[in-house]
Design a binder for these strands. Structure first.
Length: 637
RNA sequence: GCCGACGUAGCUCAAUUGGCAGAGCAACGGAUUUGUAAUCCGUAGGUUCGGGGUUCGAUUCCCCGCGUCGGCUCCA
């Protein structure tokens, strides 16, 4: 007799040993049909796993994260099977599920073409229709090793060779295709229906550039056609929001082949948005007790020798240039400069905390292949700050920084946050005591605000623990912009200190933090987040006055000037075009408000506002519209 | 940097097997005086990414370079 405990606490009793599929069937027909796999005492297993003892089980369907992952992983196997059928000389390597889909890396004598992808996808459909059972078998490690060697699957053999000898190895077979895999998988290939192959790319064996380069085929897979279509639609939407396209169409910024990759040119309209962002940033920093600094963009290389960047960061730095026969370095970071300022005075424990912020432009060498619009560039401005404080002030400072971070992100329309806390890695500097105290202070500061966080054990930098904040944009993508890092290293290296209560020298704590990270990248995220439809407070042009005929030119000009006098960004379009033409043009430029003025409005001293969505408010006095616009701006809408 | 794809007017894209480099939109000029997403006519616009090669002839084929795009952590 086997007693099976379900997640809701209920217990099912079976006379004979039973498979998970049997348990699902006993619960209900619907579940039996939807079941993909299950967990037994918390461990994921296949549906045909036989239960012989009393256990806790759950049935996994495609509705859960785990189930979706199984669908994707199984689809990657289906693809590998299809590839092996069409291209028998291709060697399989690894093929995991990833966010939104899966990939599989192959070693093949020639590059896969888009036509190959279409053929592979068609083969996958055919295999899916055959409903081939996916069966788990086990082998001894050595047996498996010779099995894959005999098949000519040398990468698989290499993987097995790294597994301890005594371990048993699981294989999954569907049709003639056998793959080394931990599983679990769907019961048969007919469960895999909604997938699409997306792209082929290069990827190194085991992610190491010294190893052989393989071909990675990316695909997406979903529980059903509807979810797949939804995702493909989202991809199309994301493309429409692409900041590189919108940046050109809205005349916000450009990059230039002549100037070099990854160097951003802000056009007048983009610069207006940046001005707004920077003004806001300065205002909230001053209010939060920060001082604003300005420091140079280059400095003697020795500074980076002292900071240690030359040792551990050199590959991301531009080559030095010679100045009066001395090597000078264009800065990849701002921190050493702030430390130089710190060291111009003797500091007392009573001076702390010192909060110093700078919109510091830095230059980092990124490999040419990784440059990407505003998201990955070689020159960018960080909204950087360094806080110097005593150990007992860490928690309060982190708490204040978190407050500033979240309120700033909220102002820019982000309301969903994910907080990660990264703790001490194996290789690190600083004493156990300071790491423990600092990590505890970070945790305390987060939970005191009632925020949840994910702990990345050992994921911190060698010089201190850190908090990262991720935001979610309108179409559900996550971005990490904000980072708060403690640094036990630089204060040592620069030998900075303060005079403690006892009159002795003490090492201050240094906190690095950035809220938006890179202004360039943050701008790119904002463009995509709003799809170019900036809220009034950010919009480069907040309203355009449109005339019906030349007879209203004087009134339109007056309206424009009155609104400008209030500090609003307003233009007038006096061209002798039909109003429909002007509306279309400025709507495409994503101007939030269009103010139509015809004879009637001129006579009444009014404007007739129309918003981006095409809704007309009807004629109203200029002052009334101005109030509304100012209110929108204040409320950051 | 590496793998693959791509590079034609400001933008989106054409150009038989290698045979005079084109269209729409944008720009510019003129006409038009218009009431809520495109008025009409005209003009100009090119070292086909750069360099080399094959050829009577190269946007097209080959080689080199540059740039752009998709990737290069997510362990069977």
């Amino acid at each position: 007799m086997v007693q099976v405990t379900l997640p809701d606490g209920s217990v099912k009793t079976f006379e004979q040993p039973v498979t998970l599929a049997g348990v699902a069937a006993a619960i209900g027909q619907g579940l039996a049909k939807a079941a993909l796999a299950g967990t037994v005492d918390g461990e994921l297993v296949d549906l045909d796993h036989l239960l012989e003892r009393d256990t806790q089980v759950t049935i996994v369907t495609a509705q859960s994260e785990a189930g979706l992952k199984i669908v994707r992983h199984s689809t990657s196997h289906l693809m590998a099977q299809a590839v092996k059928r069409l291209f028998p000389t291709a060697q399989v390597t690894i093929g995991p599920a990833v966010e939104n889909g899966f990939y599989y890396d192959f070693d093949f004598e020639r590059p896969f073409t888009p036509d190959d992808l279409a053929a592979i996808e068609a083969e996958m459909q055919a295999l899916s229709q055959q409903a081939l059972p996916v069966q788990r078998t086990e082998m001894k490690r050595n047996e498996a090793l010779s099995f894959f060697e005999a098949q000519g699957e040398l990468f698989k053999a290499e993987i097995i060779a790294a597994i301890p000898e005594e371990q048993t190895i699981s294989l999954y077979q569907q049709g003639a295709f056998v793959d080394l895999c931990r599983g679990p998988h769907v019961p048969n290939t007919s469960y895999l229906k909604a997938f699409k192959l997306l792209s082929v790319a290069g990827a190194y064996w085991r992610g190491d550039a010294r190893n052989k380069q393989l071909q990675r085929i990316y695909g997406t897979a979903w529980p059903d056609k509807k979810a797949l279509d939804g995702y493909l639609h989202q991809l199309a939407e994301a493309e429409k929001r692409d900041h590189r396209r919108l940046g050109r169409e809205l005349d916000l910024f450009s990059l230039h082949e002549e100037a070099g990759g990854g160097l951003v040119f802000w056009h007048p309209m983009g610069a207006r948005v940046r001005q707004v962002i920077e003004s806001y940033w300065k205002k909230v920093h001053v209010a939060a007790g920060y001082e604003l600094l300005f420091t140079p963009h280059i400095a003697n290389l020795d500074l980076w020798r002292t900071s240690g960047h030359l040792d551990f960061y050199q590959e991301s730095m531009f080559s030095p240039m010679l100045v009066d026969e001395q090597p000078y370095q264009i800065r990849p970071m701002n921190c050493p400069f702030h430390i130089l300022i710190y060291n111009t005075h003797l500091h007392s424990h009573r001076d702390f905390p010192l909060r110093w912020a700078e919109l510091g432009t830095v230059y980092r060498y990124e490999m040419s292949g990784v440059l990407h619009g505003l998201f990955r560039v070689r020159g960018f401005t960080q909204d950087d700050a360094h806080v110097f404080c005593r150990e007992d002030q860490i928690e309060a400072e982190i708490s204040g920084i978190l407050e500033l971070t979240l309120s700033t992100l909220q102002a820019f329309g982000f309301s969903e946050f994910e907080i990660n806390l990264s703790t001490r890695p194996a290789k690190s500097v600083g004493s156990d005591a300071i790491w423990n105290q600092a990590t505890a202070a970070l945790k305390q500061a987060i939970s005191q605000r009632g925020l949840a966080f994910v702990e990345d054990v050992g994921g911190g930098a060698f010089y201190g623990p850190k908090i990262d904040v991720k935001i979610t944009d309108t179409i559900g993508r996550k971005w990490q912009c904000s980072t708060i890092q403690l640094d036990f290293n630089l204060p040592e290296r620069f030998d900075i200190y303060y005079i403690g209560e006892d009159g002795g020298r003490k090492r201050p704590i240094m906190i690095h933090r950035a809220l938006m990270g890179s202004l360039e990248r943050f701008f790119g995220i904002l463009i995509e987040h709003y799809a170019g439809n900036f809220p009034v407070w950010l919009a480069p042009v907040q309203a355009v006055v449109l005339t019906i005929t030349d007879d209203q030119n004087d009134w339109a000009t007056e309206v424009r000037d009155r609104l400008r006098a209030l500090g609003l960004r307003v233009d007038a379009d006096l061209r002798s075009q039909k109003v429909g033409y002007k509306i279309r043009e400025h709507t495409l430029k994503r101007v939030p408000w269009l103010l139509i003025v015809g004879e009637q409005e001129k006579r009444e001293g009014a404007v007739n506002p129309r918003n981006r969505a095409g809704k007309s408010l009807g004629s109203m006095p200029v002052a009334a519209f101005a109030d509304q616009l100012l209110l929108e701006e204040t409320n950051k809408h």
